[in-house]
């Protein structure tokens, strides 16, 4: 069992799925879920889709890192996380592709979530 799951929240279903695909090719056994697009599949984000993605990876890992792209993605992700009321889910503000990629690689070598967050900080906060 991998330590940290990744959830990718994007305004575009294709972007989220694309990132998921890319990550899975590199690190096959890390749970990755995509939550892209609005409730009806258009451009936007959906609170329900994010919740579903979070629930899917729940139980497969010790923690979940959530990456997002634009404004309302953050708000919807925050709400979904609050509703699940779980401290093991963390929303992070790092490049959605590069950040998720780094996190997936580190998760695949069983780094715990707080260490992954430190690595993200080191890599992207300058």
């Amino acid at each position: 069992m991998s330590s940290t799951a990744i959830v990718v929240v994007s305004h575009s279903e294709k972007v989220a799925e694309g990132i998921k695909e890319l990550l899975q090719q590199v690190v096959g056994d890390v749970p990755v879920e995509a939550a892209g697009g609005s409730e009806i599949g258009g451009i936007g984000t959906s609170f329900e889709r994010i919740q579903n993605a979070l629930e899917k990876v729940r139980g497969t890992c010790d923690g979940t890192l959530v990456f997002y792209d634009l404004g309302s993605a953050r708000m919807n992700a925050e709400m979904a996380i609050e509703m699940l009321d779980s401290e093991s889910i963390q929303l992070v503000t790092y490049p959605i592709l590069e950040g998720a990629y780094l996190a997936a690689v580190e998760s695949s070598i069983d780094k715990p979530m707080d260490e992954i967050i430190n690595s993200l900080k080191k890599e992207f906060d300058s």
């Binding site: 609005s38 409730e39 984000t45 959906s46 609170f47 329900e48 309302s72 708000m75 919807n76 709400m79």
Partner: peptide, 15 residues
């Protein structure tokens, strides 16, 4: 509202 409005308005009015 949270689940059906979407965009930024869904989270804002929902909250």
């Amino acid at each position: 509202v949270m689940s059906k409005v979407g965009g930024a308005s869904g989270p804002l009015y929902g909250t």
